[in-house]
Design a protein around this nucleic acid. Structure first.
Lengths: 202, 202
DNA sequence: CAGTATAGTGACCGGTCGGTCGCCTGTCAA
DNA sequence: TTGACAGGCGACCGACCGGTCACTATACTG
């Protein structure tokens, strides 16, 4: 019962902070959304800031678990078609997962106020995807699926535009379909530019 | 005297809103930063929200003036080297201009709360640069400086990564030099991929 | 010179904020 | 059975918030 309450408060905090920011959120509303009295919250957290820190801890831990370890790297695609479908699957996931959407929104809002939010924002928005695709592209170059080139620059050139459109989906959800189509078009264009035509074995 | 005060209040608002967000900013501090009493502000604006709206009006008008009209489009580069230098000049400007930096930060913070901020954010972060470079790239293709291709996709592929690094500069100013070097490296890589070697005339 | 806006001030207001306190209830171990 | 404790509650607190108001000083205008 009780431990569940703590989690529910954190979930409500993610919800409200990602909509109205830390400063714009008040504890009465936050607790009321979980059917709790404001004072009950203080059985689980020392202060409003304590909620913030616990939430950030959780987000950082989740990111490290989900994207930080090399175990979770996807397998290297065996064709450029697979690269496309891998990309679309990842994008589709990240654009639809409520928790991750809220995390990105929260980081957009709070990145200039909190140092740890700032660092996590850079990982979410830039280095995370780039590092992952550096690894993927290096592997694909070894398999002669991509032109020999600097995998880091290529990964950056590939992921930054995709990331920009993910941001657009967060900002204007009604453009999600268009954005997904744009991502697919961009990915195909990228593959046409950097991919290597495989000769089908006899 | 008086008209100047109104402008100074707006400047202070841009300053504070871009650091602490709308909700996190209070009027006492804002006016005090300009050596004014809180009540004096109400001679110039009806309410806190009125400041917000006036500031947003101003930012929208400034954007339309500066980037909206076709008159302000840069001339089409005559070589890929010129494309590189044009890019670096534009980036250097946008990364150093305090007012524009604060505008981007403010839009990052408030894009999910205010519809007009949301729209302006999309222009600043995505469509503005893309549209401009669509025009530039179309012109360069006509001059046979770039491979024939869809100028829109190329512009998107060019500007989105640059935009991502501009965001990085806003978030972590200490990485500005590194980011600028990355932008230059990326631009050179892009030109190597899509540029056309010009034969020097005899 | 008198009259009237304009811009600025400090005292004040009601409401809301984060946070505390005493109290109650259910659980569970000694 | 009882006593300690965790979890939840409403009442309350001081601080701070956005906003108002009566008042003043200055500058412009008939």
């Amino acid at each position: 019962m009780a431990n569940d309450t703590k989690e529910r408060i954190l979930a409500a905090a993610l919800d409200q902070f990602s909509q109205k920011g830390y400063a714009g959120t008040n504890i009465r509303e936050l607790t009321a959304s979980q059917g709790l009295a404001k004072s009950s919250m203080y059985k689980h957290f020392k202060s409003k800031e304590d909620i913030w820190n616990a939430l950030l801890d959780k987000m950082i831990a989740y990111y490290a678990l989900r994207f930080g370890s090399p175990d979770h790297l996807p397998p290297i695609p065996d064709s450029t078609d697979e690269l496309l479908s891998l990309t679309m699957r990842m994008v589709s996931f990240t654009v639809h997962d409520e928790k991750i959407i809220k995390t990105r929104k929260l980081l957009s809002i709070e990145q200039f106020r909190d140092e740890r939010a700032r660092d996590l924002a850079t990982k979410h928005f830039l280095t995370g995807l780039t590092d992952m695709f550096s690894h993927i592209f290096a592997g694909m170059m070894e398999k002669s699926l991509l032109r020999e080139d600097d995998p880091k620059i290529l990964a950056f050139a590939y992921t930054a535009p995709i990331s920009a459109l993910i941001h657009l989906c967060d900002r204007e959800p009604e453009k999600q379909q268009t954005a997904m189509a744009q991502i697919e078009a961009f990915s195909r264009h990228f593959i046409k530019t950097y991919g290597i035509q495989q000769v089908s074995p006899m």
